[in-house]
Design a protein around this nucleic acid. Structure first.
Lengths: 179, 179
DNA sequence: TAATGCATGTAAGTAGTTACATGATTCC
DNA sequence: GGAATCATGTAACTACTTACATGCATTA
């Protein structure tokens, strides 16, 4: 069982989803393609950690809706208590910035401007997610308890928002430094 | 040529280093093991992007000190101008936090406390790096120009410091939420 | 009419990790 | 006496990406 497998189980604790939906919703936390997810779901099903129902559709392709089993929930509880891997962060931009003195100011500004566009889009997506949370849960988000299924996803959105703000602050700081 | 290969070239623009040193210094920007780096250095040497001198040592194992060639610098200038890959961030903690409602408050606090230790250590390392920069460059770090070889590494340390502060802020915020 | 979204899957390739291998020195 | 650091390398494995494959509906 690799980390992504546990990640898929984790997403299924909130509600049932198709492989396609899992692929979409895991993106903010773990970048994975459908070609990696579908075989893992088959393995999870073999092990009895998930179960699926086949749902035929007429306008769209048929789908498999996966749910987590009690065995799957047990596996998750065990996993959470084990030591956590250090986060892995790989950014080509950082490697380019390291040797930025090799190119002129214009190219450096282009590099930064492109990345800023990426961060701004990301921020918008998280803002939308945040608004969706506000709609879904009737009460004030700040009153969510750890026992609430929404708690985890909510605090993760807050984490992502804090980080993207730090990234944008750096972009602005850099722009000023380059005049 | 993969991204890590360009990363190695990038580190060599500052000064010559051994494979072992490259492995150590690329860690903050790109996590890679020596077993991945040594074969890539051999390829870079074959292509004429780097050159090495064999340095025998008596107390420690002999080493190969690599330098970037003019051809290597050309390759880097071309790479910087090409579109940059989106950053990849994979954090097992995020996946665990997603389904944190499955475990009790004590386990959640343990999870957070462990990660805080990791971030505090990281912050210390960056503070030390920052101090080393201050020593090395005679002038005020804020006066560094893009043409200065130190500029890139310096702004990256600042980026890392901003991000680790955001991470620690989130940890504190979480701790309060969990009482 | 070309692209995008929905929806699943496999095959082939690249990237990254873990383990094996060696050996002196230093630190606890 | 055992672990960590320096220093290089290869072998085997796992994880991840890209490409191939299908097909209908909607949108630009």
């Amino acid at each position: 069982m690799n980390t992504l497998s546990y990640g898929l189980l984790s997403l299924l604790t909130k509600h049932s989803r198709t492989g396609y939906e899992l692929m979409q919703h895991i993106q903010p936390f773990w970048q994975a393609k459908h070609s990696q997810i579908y075989p893992l779901l088959a393995l999870l099903e073999q092990k009895g950690y998930v179960a699926f129902v086949h749902v035929p559709q007429s306008d769209k392709p048929d789908k498999k809706v996966y749910s987590i089993t009690d065995l799957g929930k047990e596996a998750i509880r065990h996993w959470i208590k084990e030591p956590t891997d250090d986060p892995v962060f790989r950014d080509e931009l950082a490697l380019k910035v390291y040797c930025i003195s090799l190119v002129d100011k214009e190219h450096a500004l282009k590099l930064l401007a492109d990345r800023k566009v990426y961060y701004v889009k990301k921020k918008e997506r998280f803002n939308q997610l945040f608004d969706k949370f506000k709609e879904e849960s009737g009460k004030d988000l700040e009153d969510l308890e750890i026992t609430d299924l929404q708690f985890g996803p909510y605090v993760l959105v807050r984490k992502a928002m804090m980080k993207v703000d730090a990234d944008l602050t750096w972009c602005e700081w850099m722009k000023k430094k380059l005049h």
